[in-house]
Simulated assay, not measured.
Amino acid sequence: MRAELIAIGSELLLGEIIDTNSAHLAQKLRTIGLSVERFSAIGDDVAAIARLVQEASARAAVVITTGGLGPTVDDPTREAVARAFGQDLEYRPELWEQIAERFRRFGRTPTENNRRQAYVPAGAIPLENPVGTAPCFIVEHAQGVVICLPGVPREMEHMLETRVLPYVRERFNLRGVIKAKLLRTVGIGESMIDAEIGELEKLTNPTVGLNAHAGAVDVRITAKAESEAEADALIAPVAAQVREKLGDYIYAEEKIALEEAVLQMLAMRGLTLTIAEDGTRGALNAKLALLPQAAQVYRGASVLNASPLTEEAARLRSERSADLALALRVTATPEEKRIETALASANDIKTHTQTYGGALTNLAQWAVTVALNQIRIRLARQEPL
């Protein structure tokens, strides 16, 4: 069985806000064994929303909309969903009383336009919203259900957890789970990973997928099963094969950023780090300085001078009394974009140089990933520093 998600609001299409609701919904729906087949975003157009709801309902048993339940004329969800199923809107006095009571609790009086929120499509199942003023509702039809939730994330999340997930699980007799395991890699490209584990990507349960970032790639293994234990059993042998193929390129097996992993490695070994960077507008320091572990292991950033990187790394380590010092320099000319690092310890200085062929706007982020990976590789060797 499949679900579709529809985010409603012209502000989404204008780029004024980001749709975080759909990602949250997808993550939560998989805990009850429901796969999301499609996300859509649409503006505040009643006719267009009605058509999209009809199309989604023909494809998926569960359609969930977010947004458009406010009291203003540009909140179209109630009217659009009613139109999609050929229904009129009907006034529910109990919903109006819930809205008025919520206003009273805040010492306020609802305006007449709030009364719009007490209308739902005829025959819909109303859902009281205890954390907001916009009631939600469910329309049951021959092929499945349409569930309409608020666009405010806090309200949507509460309604999802307390009302929607229990309803969907019971309505469709769902007993399974969908569980995912994340293996995070760095220093290896997506095409190289595909060459190594391409056969695993053809599996159907669990499935294996890749998601590329700036200089890093996530491998996600997703299983559908009757229980978490069964899902884990499906995932485990596939994860073992991925580990065998990719080895030290894997830096974490959870949703942890590379900079967090590096600082954790430093903390585990009782080591400290200082850095200096040029050509990145302080991007590396920005990644490290605000992390919780920074106070324990990070000695801050310095200005990178024009001297050779090896000299700069040695100078930094001495001046900051750090166990490791990284000097990062990024240069971009019409002919070449170059990333250079020097990593100094008590015993040696390791250097690394690579060119970059992507867009200039992504160069700094790639350089940060390269620099962090050089530190990670050095720490992972467990050699004396």
Rank of each mutant, 00 (worst) to 15 (best):
K202P: 05
F85C: 10
L12F: 14
S321A: 10
R317L: 06
S302D: 02
I32D: 06
A134V: 12
C136N: 02
E94L: 03
G68V: 07
A257H: 08
A257M: 14
Q143G: 08
E16N: 11
E90G: 08
L284S: 03
K350M: 05
S321K: 15
H158N: 13
A214N: 10
F106D: 05
E196N: 00
R378E: 08
I147F: 06
A313Q: 00
A100S: 03
E170N: 10
D19G: 08
A82N: 02
A225G: 14
E161C: 00
A306F: 03
L246A: 12
V186C: 07
L291I: 04
E112Y: 06
V53I: 05
H141D: 08
I256V: 06
T310Q: 14
A122N: 09
A47W: 07
V219F: 13
V168T: 03
A48Q: 14
G176V: 02
I147C: 15
A252I: 14
L258Y: 06
L234R: 12
D278V: 08
R163Y: 04
G33E: 15
R243I: 02
L273P: 14
E161I: 00
G33M: 10
P153K: 07
S227M: 10
A236W: 08
T109H: 01
Y249W: 01
Q87F: 14
V164T: 05
N211Y: 15
